[in-house]
């Protein structure tokens, strides 16, 4: 079977789930459709020779970010037995603006010379070496940023009365 058709299967998965997120007003449906979007994008990452990024996407987005989002939805809606809906406003203007944005990006990128994706041998080993040599400073800075952000999040979200926050 031609490998190219798998690209289109994953791309169709992403497009359909994103359209679903755009159409639905139910927040939980949107969160679960986001799982499908992230899965499709991870599949495309594998096809673009980025195995490690795909696995990281699965672990952090689906394992972490989505769980956080579902927790946020559950914790901020007290009504039981009813679907959790979001209200819309500026619908026509927003949709028109984003359609124009899509059309202009597609138009402006028409001239790109794209080549075939070729296999990259030993990509994960090379990425590991590069992270600990070429990109080491950036790697450390991102680690410190993540630590500070998580400590800040815990400080902000803590209940009143347990401290001075």
């Amino acid at each position: 079977m031609d490998i190219g058709i798998i690209h289109y299967i994953f791309a169709a998965l992403v497009v359909l789930s994103v359209l679903g997120i755009l159409v639905t007003r139910n927040l939980l449906y949107a969160a679960f459709l986001l799982v499908l979007t992230f899965l499709g994008v991870a599949g495309l990452f594998v096809l673009a020779q980025a195995d490690f990024v795909a696995v990281t996407q699965l672990m952090i987005y689906i394992g972490g970010v989505l769980i956080l989002l579902v927790f946020g939805i559950m914790l901020t809606n007290r009504v039981a037995g009813q679907p959790i809906l979001t209200q819309l406003n500026r619908t026509v203007l927003g949709v028109l603006f984003s359609v124009a944005l899509f059309a202009s990006i597609v138009y402006l990128t028409q001239g790109f010379q794209t080549t075939e994706i070729v296999a990259a041998p030993h990509a994960i080993q090379r990425l590991g070496m590069a992270i600990l040599t070429d990109y080491f400073i950036l790697f450390e800075i991102v680690g410190v940023l993540l630590l500070v952000a998580l400590v800040g999040a815990a400080t902000i979200a803590r209940f009143k009365g347990e401290g001075h926050g």
Binding site: Q87, R90, L93
Partner: peptide, 8 residues
């Protein structure tokens, strides 16, 4: 642009 809920 179109949603009013923060999580959306």
């Amino acid at each position: 642009l179109t949603r009013q809920n923060v999580i959306a």
